[in-house]
Amino acid sequence: MFIQIISLVLDVVAGLIAGACLVRLAMQWQRIPFNNPIGQFIFAVSDRLVMPLRRWVPALGRLDTASLVGAWLVKLTQFIVLWLLGGGQGPLLLVLVLSVIGVLQLAITCLTAVVLLHAVLSWMQPGSMNFMLIDRLCQAWLAPIRRTVPLVGGIDLSSLVLLVLLQIASMVVGSIQMGLMH
């Protein structure tokens, strides 16, 4: 039970910090300013990790690789702690691979949360500043679907289609992760 509690706490803390790094990466990719409450929160959570990494990890064009490396380091730390708590059984290389998969799984989870938030805000607060920020984060993902899926009775189903695709991706990544662990 002790390991389960530690695992839960690690998952929450690592998810918050690494998730903030991934959202920061997406905001910078989309050139979304951080001068809003969501941006300031993301900046506050990720800044102490990302800024020192920028000295050694240069950006690749618009890709903020320091944020990506920061997210991976957080997940790597989480998996190493769990590996050590489990007695250090299994190869350390597996922990490295699982941490990469953990970042991918977290990216899918973050995008799922943003798309759900986008769908809710589009019905409840379509003109709010928060909706505009979330909308900009989602546009790169929703635009290709909107070109393919027609409106049904005037309703945009692109968010639903993207959520289904994200669930499928999550199942595939989870299956790969479980396959590696056994």
Rank of each mutant, 00 (worst) to 15 (best):
F2W: 13
I3G: 03
I3R: 04
I3K: 04
I5T: 11
I6F: 05
I6V: 15
V9M: 06
V9R: 05
V9N: 03
V12D: 05
G15Q: 06
G15E: 03
L16Q: 04
I17P: 05
I17W: 06
G19A: 09
G19Q: 03
A20H: 01
L22G: 05
R24S: 06
L25A: 10
A26F: 11
A26P: 02
M27D: 02
W29I: 00
W29Q: 11
Q30P: 01
Q30T: 04
Q30M: 12
I32E: 06
N35M: 08
N36R: 07
N36P: 07
P37G: 08
I38F: 09
I38L: 15
F43V: 12
F43H: 15
A44S: 14
A44F: 10
V45E: 13
V45Q: 12
S46G: 15
R48C: 08
L49Q: 05
M51T: 15
M51K: 15
R55T: 11
R55Y: 13
V57K: 07
A59Y: 10
A59I: 09
A59T: 13
A59C: 08
A59R: 15
A59S: 14
L60I: 13
L63N: 05
T65L: 14
A66H: 01
V69E: 02
V69F: 07
G70L: 08
W72E: 00
L73C: 07
L73A: 09
L76V: 04
L76I: 04
F79C: 04
F79Y: 11
F79H: 11
F79R: 13
F79Q: 15
I80N: 05
V81W: 03
V81K: 04
L82E: 10
L85Y: 04
G86R: 04
G88W: 05
Q89W: 07
Q89L: 10
P91N: 14
P91Y: 08
L92E: 05
L96D: 03
L96M: 12
L98W: 05
S99Q: 02
S99Y: 04
V100Y: 03
G102M: 01
G102V: 00
Q105E: 08
T109Q: 12
T109A: 13
T109P: 01
L111Y: 06
L117F: 10
H118L: 06
H118A: 10
L121I: 05
S122T: 12
P126K: 00
G127A: 09
S128F: 09
N130Y: 13
F131I: 06
M132H: 13
L133M: 13
R136C: 00
C138V: 04
A140T: 11
A140D: 08
W141R: 01
W141Q: 11
L142P: 03
P144R: 11
R146D: 12
R146A: 08
R147M: 12
L151Y: 10
V152I: 14
G153L: 09
I155V: 13
D156H: 03
D156R: 00
L157E: 02
S158K: 00
S159P: 00
V161Y: 00
V161A: 10
V161P: 00
L163V: 09
L163K: 01
Q167S: 15
A169M: 10
S170F: 06
M171C: 04
M171V: 11
V172G: 06
V172S: 05
G174P: 05
G174K: 14
L180I: 07
L180Y: 08
